[in-house]
Design a protein around this nucleic acid. Sequence first.
RNA 1: AGGCUCGUGGCGGAAUUGGCAGACGCAGCGGACUUAAAAUCCGCAGAGUUCACCCUCAUCCGGGUUCAAGUCCCGGCGAGCCUACCA
Length: 933
Amino acid sequence: MAEIETLHRYDAKRADEIECRWQQQWMRDGAFRAPNPGDAGFDPSKPKYYILDMFPYPSGAGLHVGHPEGYTATDIVARYKVSCGFNVLHPMGWDAFGLPAEQYAVQTGVHPAVTTQSAIDNFRRQLQRLGFRYDWSREFATIDSDYYRWTQWIWLRAYHAYYDVATDRAQPIAQLQSQLASEDRLIALADGRQIQWSACTPQQQQAHLDGFRLAYLGHQTVNWCPALGTVLANEEVIDGRSERGGHPVLRMPLRQWMFRITAYAQRLLDDLALVEWPESTRAMQTQWIGRSEGAEVRFAVEGFGDLTVFTTRPDTLFGATYMVVAPEHPLVEWVSAMRGGAHTKITEYANWSRNRSDVDRQAESREKTGIALGVSALNPATGERIPIWTADYVLMAYGTGAIMAVPAHDERDFEFAKRFDLPIRQVVAAVDGGVWTGACATPLPGIACNSRSAQVSLDGLATPAATAKMIAWLVEAGLGSKRVNFRLRDWLFSRQRYWGEPFPIVFDERGMHFPVAESALPVRLPTLVDYAPIESAQPMPPLAKATDWVATTAGEAGVDPTLLDPATPVRREVNTMPGWAGSCWYYLRYCDPKNNAQFVGKSAQQYWMGDRGVDLYIGGSEHAVLHLLYARFWHKMLFDLGEVFTPEPFAKLFHQGMITSFAFERVDGSLLATDAVRQESGQWFEIATGHAVNRVIAKMSKSLKNVVTPDDVVAEYGADTLRLYEMYMGPLADSKPWNTRDIAGVFRFLQRVWRLAIDERTGSVIVAREGNREIERQLHRTIHKVAIDIERLAFNTAIASLIELVNAATRPTEMKDPSDGGLSRDQLRRFLSVLAPFAPHLAEELWMRIGEAGSVTLAPWPRVDQTQLVDDTLELPVQIAGKVRARVIVPSGADASAIELIVLRDAKVQEALAGRAPKKVIVVPKRMVNVLV
RNA sequence: AGGCUCGUGGCGGAAUUGGCAGACGCAGCGGACUUAAAAUCCGCAGAGUUCACCCUCAUCCGGGUUCAAGUCCCGGCGAGCCUACCA
């Protein structure tokens, strides 16, 4: 009996059957194919919409339920935009080079090419099972040589370019080179000598040009991580440990490929104003770029020359009572060399602090350390001799690696001055006239004081005016200038790893580098059997093991014969590019992924990127700085080089929140796995001890046994339910806990939708004979609200309104004739087209069953009748003395005075007024009425 | 230490941006159907006062602006994220 009743019910088995069948059908029909301009089926009359998910990194573990959150959101928007008449580009592919795959390979002994491919296949299978309308014909992976060929090509473009300050954009380096040659300019060599360009050796010329290239070989202090066997970018080091794995990071000097991202600092900052991005992300990038305005001031040091500092407070120059240079500063070396063995303590200190890893620095207290160099500088304002110290609180990498210390108005300098008993002089007074006690530093703006000399006086000026006057004086006296400084550093782009893009570059025996010609790309990654990192004190890239590949000739490698004789023996670059490389431009390749002649065809790019780039980009906020800054930088380089046509790549950005899970916490704060706990009358207890524990929100992790995978949920409820649940959990941007129990709610909703159209006993279609007027009204409102909510990415409330509609239309059990209730065929049709973006399989199935032609995925968004959105009458609450005391029914078009009349005549209002005359009546049409007594 | 974001029922969350706080869902309770259960359908449901009506209190705490505050302003407490000696 029971079996017969549920024979045609929407259950997991039926969902599975429906979903798999339609997924195959869509694939067969090429339903999600987006033709390019010029392709068959391309409709140029439609506007474009480019919606993109952040590039997934396929891990061996497969998807967990966090992944499909953003993907479902973009899928809903994509389907909605299609039904609104847009040509929608919605691609998917794989970011597949990089550290995790390589480490996994080293652990398992299976080649990364193999593990990566199976991870990709698994990810693709899982995503396809969820019915996302990706144009899979555009799929690619960063490890495809057809793709990384162009990654190398872009790198070469940067290698062949420099930043021209005069035009404020990148230009071909050949231009600079011919300028230097034709004018035969004087070139400053590394040792300080100046010689004519024509008199330079080729090595000297190359070194000079490397000082300008956007992709250049630089000698840098790098973050060397022995555990990972590679160096890391500044962005990949957190608290002195590697972002990935948390291993200690050491600092050492190394010759590495760099990107001159600092040349773009100002534009990267300015153009944040052009994009529609979360405020927090823009703030993070702004902070990371770290622009500060100030001045450069030169202090004379006898015998050494000028010691230049950067300061944001030149107005406090009179208060500079000592100076500090970083332990790596050339002055330190100069002093110890000059004083020979007599001052080994200085060398000792410099070495000690230089070799101290950032971890040690963090671990120790903030107690300042330092040592006096025994030399002094001339304070240009006061004319006083002030001592120079070295201390590790001054960083070589920021500004000039040297500071003027103004202990009265800088907390760090104050602390240092107290520790080493250095003089402190107030030069800024509080605006409110408060007396400076000398107990702490006062870094705030104020009124300059004690700042007078024969040449210049700042006394009495407010900080901004004092700053301006000081800079003017410094410029006039030839002692300094206005300067803008950035926190951003150049981007270290080499990794000592196997699993990455090879650099298209070779070195000859003199150590000079030569580019591989564009026509010879790609430089293929050789297949290595032993790709394990080489353990050593010095970085040793694994590619060095591919000796046959490394040692070659210029001709073999593809170096332009006019640059180097093809027979010349050369060695290939053995470093590889970092994992970020491939994700810097993938959104461009999606526009034209099969192009063999160009990195992206011009017409395809111009169509899909349009004026503003990607229309909607959704991904996690963990990429707020790294990926999003790097991609913007590449885009701007390509813009300057005439390869792309929008200043920014991503017009609108949105971060989905994290999906968390529950775990349990003992009284002492330690966490328990979900299977170590039982629930009893609303309380949780640790099974082993019987002690009460608290339910808390935690990240999904294997150890807590709270990981949920899409495969699990699909098996139990189907993909439509999973999609709907993830979108119904709460606002997309929020992080929210997965609660398995709640899934039943949306599953029941889909079952009610099913029953609206299908008789569960017979499986036949049942619709209302005629559409109910009230339901019709609500249907229009629902269509209207769902559209608005999709546009603002508020999927939870869109679904709530769909549920409300279905609840209203659901037939009561006691209804004898089902065609008395529910939705009419026409209403059902319109309802299914607004349900389709959320639950595409069920919508498609019912669409077919009620006899609609074609696919619901191609149906236009139903028209909303504006007159159906307003009622004839409205119920308004009436507040009297601040409390709602009555409700009145008014015509919806009534104006304020008409409403007031109705309100004052109302019996309840009269009663509540109890004879008092209203002092004032405030009418907010369509909202409420407030009567003041 | 600083910057940003945020604190609403037992739980996830709504609230057209200053206008009836708690939509919708979960969990809970009651009813119908059933021999019974499940499923389904119909209701109830912030807290308090002896139920329904009524009334009082209520959006972390304390002040303020306003006819009106979850929403705006000031102060405090708490949470999360980011930065962390950046001169």
